[in-house]
């Protein structure tokens, strides 16, 4: 019962990935830079949403430190890819510490190291804070996110302080982003559906019972935290090389807040939901820009009001939350079985 149509499912997954990359290939050649950029941001939000959902939705730990992990990944990757000449130009207040000032490595290893650094801090932050529960944990991780920003601002010989890093090579494109997005979704979906994932969900459902059934609560919470932080670091690195300039304020609480919107709208605990919401969130934000332009409604002239789209966006959020309390997908996941059944029946 479990194994039937296994190969069919693999085949369908493979075909959809090929189709996805064909679309990207087409988009890369035909769309203008603006659209490509929006789509790239969408891909990054998928990575961020899915990774935060592993922590908040699957394991049930309410973490608010995601932007902090992204910042760590972004700064690490940026410092590793910048050319030596660029570093000398950027760090004019205080020189960059050795040996970072002499290192320049390719994008992929830099991204990976960024992810590993974020994961390491996940471990470091997780060990003390994950002993806390519920609201206390949320506050502790929020504190971490704020501290990271302060640290970035003040370690001038590493991060260049409030001026940030400039002139990063624009490595991030659709291929890099969606390659990582596919890998993130693959890794986290497989993890959630494995024995480890069952343990994580058991912790979310009932911590006391999970522990009584032999699940080491603390170990598994830290594990989820580290995996989530790793992919946040990767997302941060990608974002840095898309924007080509980063500064500490870019990684403050508002970024975490955006990702939180993505996972709540998509459905806490649904990876499919995070993918859908992550993809459409930046597109919707861009599309709503027209609201801020001056316009005439029924003969009444409305001047452009900056920030108006956030008001409309919040209203949209409210409406979604009223009609879908558990987000668009609840805790359901997309599955081939559902689609196969449909076609087989007819």
């Amino acid at each position: 019962m479990r194994k039937e149509k296994l190969y069919l499912r693999y085949l369908l997954t493979l075909i959809s990935i090929v189709i996805l990359f064909l679309i990207i290939w087409w988009a890369d050649g035909h769309l203008d830079n603006y659209y490509k950029r929006v789509l790239t941001v969408s891909g990054i939000y998928i990575i961020l949403g899915v990774s935060l959902n592993l922590i908040n939705g699957i394991t049930g730990i309410f973490s608010l430190g995601h932007a902090g992990f992204m910042g760590l990944g972004a700064y690490t990757a940026a410092l590793l890819t910048m050319s030596v000449a660029q570093k000398q130009m950027t760090f004019f207040i205080e020189p960059l510490i050795s040996p970072l000032d002499k290192i320049s490595i390719p994008f992929l290893p830099a991204l990976l190291i960024g992810g590993v650094v974020a994961a390491f801090f996940g471990l470091l932050i997780g060990i003390p804070t994950l002993r806390l529960g519920g609201d206390y944990l949320a506050i502790a991780t929020l504190g971490f996110g704020e501290i990271i920003v302060v640290v970035f601002n003040n370690t001038i010989n590493i991060t260049n302080g409030a001026l940030g890093l400039k002139g990063l090579s624009p490595y991030t494109n659709l291929w890099w982003t969606y390659g990582w997005a596919v890998f993130t979704v693959f890794f986290i979906t497989r993890l959630v559906n494995s024995s480890y994932g069952r343990a994580l969900k058991a912790i979310r459902e009932n911590e006391v019972a999970a522990q009584a059934m032999g699940v080491n609560i603390f170990y598994h919470k830290v594990l989820a935290f580290i995996v989530g932080a790793f992919f946040a670091g990767i997302g941060g690195g990608l974002l840095a090389h898309l924007l080509t300039t980063i500064n500490p304020v870019a990684f403050n609480f508002f970024l975490t807040f955006n990702i939180l919107i993505v996972i709540v709208i998509g459905g806490l605990g649904s990876i499919t939901g995070s993918v859908i919401a992550g993809f459409f969130f930046p597109i919707l934000l861009e599309w709503l820009r027209f609201i801020e332009a001056p316009m005439d409604v029924f003969g009444i002239h409305i001047p452009g009001i900056p920030g108006m789209r956030m008001v409309v966006f919040s209203l949209l959020l409210l409406i979604v939350m009223i009609f879908y309390q558990r987000g668009l997908m609840g805790r359901s996941e997309f599955s081939w079985d559902f689609i196969i059944k449909r076609f087989v029946k007819d």
Binding site: R198, K201, A202, E205, N206, A209, A212
Partner: peptide
Amino acid sequence: NIRLFTDL
């Protein structure tokens, strides 16, 4: 008081 993993 039964403590199952209700959503699993």
